[in-house]
Design a protein around this nucleic acid. Structure first.
Lengths: 143, 143
DNA sequence: GGTTGACCTCAAGTTGACTTGAATTCGTAT
DNA sequence: ATACGAATTCAAGTCAACTTGAGGTCAACC
């Protein structure tokens, strides 16, 4: 019921139409057809877009999201991969907590230079998870 | 004590030397001087870099980080801003939890299309926090 | 039936965060 | 003293994720 045209989706999501067109182009979302030239979207695309936004804040690339979320219905990745992603996110949450705590400490600690402050030192110590260089990307060759 | 040269920092952080040079260039970190041509770093830069990596996973830009963390000692932003950032991160953690839960649900839910599944619907509903368009950036004009 | 305004396409531009390459300069071991 | 390898600079290239602009189309209102 009630196909949405692009401006409606834009309004509901806050995303600019240009972005929606771009997402359509790269196959991240799919339009339910055209009325004349104009894309018509199913209402559910709004939920999809919300998920995509969440995924982005989690640091997933658009191609990652395209693999995880069924754009038009088809692809759908396997449970294990999904759970692996979820674990990934848990790790990230842990990192964020650490950063948040550090920030709050830096805000409140009276030490002139935090590099000296023992609390700060302790916070930074023994972390693992270094270079965030290669984001959780979906390439896997031979399992 | 013991200045580190760039390869040593690279080894300890896992970051390529090119990145360290780049960070130095943009003033995100500072070298403690040169021995001939070669940059010499204080050991504390390692902790700084760890923080920077964390910050990046939190979605902060390098310029954001440059404002928050004292590169050579000086800048240091005020407590309120720091706490605001921390709050920002808390919100992000909430988002991530939501995404993680959604992912796990999608992984386990037997429904053929999740757009139909009521649990899924409920998860997506009433969220706010839409377009992650403009990352938590540091511009503030008149409070 | 003509003008408007929302939509379209396609190519090119932008930004952030780096990387790569070529040409050069050191410090150290032989 | 010379050669080697590690470090340097600087310009240019790359990639993702969009945005912008020029020029075109269409349905609808007057």
């Amino acid at each position: 019921m009630a196909l949405l045209d692009i401006s409606e989706v834009a309004k509901q999501t806050g995303l600019p139409a240009s972005t929606l067109r771009y997402y359509d182009d790269i196959g991240l979302i799919a339009s339910a057809g055209r009325k004349g030239l104009r894309r018509q979207f199913l209402p559910e695309v709004v939920a999809q877009l919300r998920l995509i936004s969440l995924g982005q804040t989690a640091g997933f690339s658009l191609t990652d999201m395209a693999q995880m979320l069924p754009a038009n219905g088809a692809p759908q990745v396997d449970r294990d991969t999904l759970h692996a992603r979820a674990d990934e996110i848990d790790r990230q949450i842990a990192d964020l907590r650490k950063l948040r705590d550090t920030l709050r400490h830096v805000a409140d600690c009276p030490a002139p230079s935090h590099l000296d402050c023992p609390t700060f030192q302790r916070m930074m110590a023994a972390s693992g998870r270094w270079a965030r260089r290669d984001k959780p990307s979906a390439k896997r060759s031979a399992p």
